[in-house]
Design a protein around this nucleic acid. Structure first.
Lengths: 361, 361
DNA sequence: GTCGTTCGTGAATCGGACG
DNA sequence: TCGTCCGATTCACGAACGA
């Protein structure tokens, strides 16, 4: 059995991911993002101090008989990933201490080359209610190439631009998925127990893929990978065993408006930029790529790109550079110069930086 | 061959750690901290942008022929750790993505139970000079008990106090070891290539051991574990293969002044306080039989009986049982739920328990 | 509408003494 | 080993609600 690429591109394929991976054309994916079951071995129920019950991840898909069974499963889907991944492609896997060590060993044994382990620091994790351990406040991602000498994509300058013009570190502070972003079913319950935040996928995709690339997710779930890929001008291939999840993902992605082409381009040149993490505002969805910013009561305007740079009629650069450029000035504080429109009012983007600071610290 | 505990306590034992672990008495350690070789697979030398050479970890002790050889080594020293570790003791291992996955799998396979993975976020990491990856800005520690049901030590309140009265999270931001703390040899070069900061060991030891405990480090190196253990009023056992390192560690530790006893004590948890039956409060006359207790601002009430049980409209039982009963809840902490009226104010009965405790001790 | 308060909830391997 | 019962334990957000 085999599946043609055009039948898979920008689609959600239902079925067992190991089988589907085998059936897909070799080397069809530039990037793979995988959020496999964590194999959490929960015992009894857990209650908060106020006696309410914690809605734990007790889905059948997270149950394995033993570590050995989990290892076997891991090696099977990783073999499938090796098949679909281009030789210069890279793989991201996310997990917790329950499973990530086993994934890491499997990766190394199978010839993948670990490039980084990246820690997702949750700004708002669930507390430890019984006071018996440290608050489990992070998850771990492994970023690996297919082999030690691969010429993989890493958008170094874009990452640096997104991080205050400092090199992007291996620890990323981002909030968990909640509020309107969290997809609910008809009963108002969460549609998927482990939906990942779009900001996380934004950073993964901007860092290690190019516009037009094919991003494959073998555990598609609610389709966060597809949603962000589409918004950022990448193709996706989603594999999902559960029909309900697949259906939710399709609906979700259909509602996504891709950002204009020029907005998903990221910085390539090595130029000194001021130390302002405007990219985080974009990454966190406080301003979507493509948003128009206004300067001096609509006398000037520019458009936001995915890596936090701005583009105007004849130039590209940081919020400060473009602010200075459009005024013909030597320097400019972009945070106070640029404004965005909200309910008919112009609001300085510095407000968003303050929001972000408050949520991070 | 065997080594008596008194010959090992507060000493640095030279020799192969696997052999030494076997020779030590079973169950002699309350806590083990291990900083094993990372098995970094460096290819060629690394240079900074200014062409200066980076003094990488290329020591002979960090070279393994293959992952299999590293795994074998790991399981050998971990078996030794199981031998020396008390049943209710815990183990910390620190590593990077080069080795930590393999350590984690070995731990899990050997029956250890992971309690947390803790990320050490370096506030001042070495940058990535090539711009080909994310700045490697953290290391990972695994904290594990000997088996799933162990009654391990975790000084929850102490950790909370150290973190501005918020639960301590699984990510710790601490600087790397540098400046005066970094031990130099006669030539001014660093004496050990991977010396850990004392602040890291401080947090490890305060969180998961008690004063007087025995802390064993099978890869003692420059002796950071011993230095901090001594300062915090714990015993240490250091195992080190290299005579030079052992000598450096001995000198270093000899210069340490232990903190006064009262300073190494940490906040006692409420769980460790002596238990006071509610009946004692009645017996001592702090509340006369017949007193009316109120729950939730007079929404519920019950009457105290001479034996310390409560009676409400339709039930009799302990303060906890009746508290749960009137709320229709499964459980309740009667000490904090019930209040009595004194001079027109409602006062939690827990206040009386505290009075009684103070008068007893 | 606005502001302040209450309520709900998130990938969680979450107790221990005593009979 | 198992059942019973005491009694210790939460942070950040966003939504909903009420004044």
């Amino acid at each position: 059995m085999s599946i043609e690429l055009e039948k898979a591109l920008d689609r959600v394929l239902e079925g067992d991911c190991v089988e589907t991976l085998k059936a897909l054309p070799a080397g069809c994916a530039d990037l793979v993002f995988a959020d496999p079951p964590y194999n959490m071995q929960l015992k009894g129920e857990l209650r908060r101090p106020d006696n309410s019950k914690v809605d734990a991840v007790d889905d059948a898909w997270d149950q394995f008989e033993s570590f050995q069974a989990y290892d076997k499963f891991t090696r099977e889907w990783l073999a499938g990933v090796r098949h679909v991944l281009k030789d210069n492609g890279t793989l991201w896997v996310i997990g917790s201490y329950h499973n990530i060590f086993r994934v890491g060993v499997a990766l190394q044994d199978m010839g993948f080359w670990v490039l980084n382990d990246v820690v997702w620091r949750k700004s708002n994790p669930m507390p430890n209610f019984k006071g018996k351990r440290f608050t489990n406040a992070h998850e771990t991602m492994i970023w690996a190439s297919k082999n030690p000498n691969a010429k993989y994509t890493f958008n170094y300058e874009a990452m640096k631009a997104m991080n205050d013009d400092l090199q992007m570190r291996s620890d990323w502070t981002l909030p968990i998925c909640s509020g309107h972003e969290r997809i609910k079913n008809a009963d108002g319950e969460k549609a998927h127990s482990t939906q990942k935040p779009e900001s996380l996928l934004h950073r993964v995709i901007v860092s290690s893929s190019k516009p037009g690339d094919v991003i494959l997710d073998p555990f598609f779930g609610s389709g966060t990978t597809g949603a962000v890929a589409r918004r950022l001008g990448r193709h996706f291939i989603g594999l999902e065993r559960d029909k309900e999840y697949a259906s939710i993902a399709r609906q979700r992605i259909a509602a996504i408006e891709p950002a204009p082409d020029e907005c998903v381009e990221v910085t390539r040149s090595k130029r000194a930029e001021p130390r302002i993490p405007f990219g985080w505002v974009v990454e966190r969805g406080l301003l979507p790529p493509g948003t128009i910013l206004h300067g001096q009561q609509k006398r000037h305007k520019a458009k936001v790109r995915a890596d936090g740079t701005l583009v105007c009629a004849d130039a590209t650069g940081s919020i400060h550079q473009i602010g200075a450029h459009v005024q013909g000035a030597e320097a400019c504080n972009g945070w106070t110069f640029w404004q965005y429109e909200h309910k008919g009012k112009l609001i300085p983007i510095d407000v968003l930086r303050q929001q972000l600071r408050a949520s991070i610290s």
